[in-house]
Amino acid sequence: MSQHIVPMRVYFVIFFSLLILTAVTVWVAFFDLGAVNDAVALGIATTKAMLVILYFMHVRYSSKLTWIFAATGFLFLIILLAFTLSDVLTRDWIPVSAGWGGGAQ
């Protein structure tokens, strides 16, 4: 069969990279970087997730159709989060007249 067999060495390299990135994310969390803390934490988490998806989940060696499927899940996740935040974070930008729903109470 034509299953792509990844050399075992690759798996160990990814494993140790993931452990190192975990240590880095804990270490960085104790520095006060303001809003950058969250960006760094999520950046590292995303990098770790990419390593798992590409190598442990074999997407790197899979068909283009599998790539599209894998990417679709995250595309929809980004839409979910982006549209949620575009609402929640911008609610105070424009003052709304007190009449809106104000009649109830």
Partner: peptide
């Protein structure tokens, strides 16, 4: 199994590591 691992990779910083400085 790897998917479940990825969920934890995001849960760990978001739940345990915020506001530590």
């Amino acid at each position: 199994w790897h998917f479940v691992d990825i969920v934890w990779i995001f849960l760990f910083p978001l739940l345990y590591l915020i506001g530590r400085n």
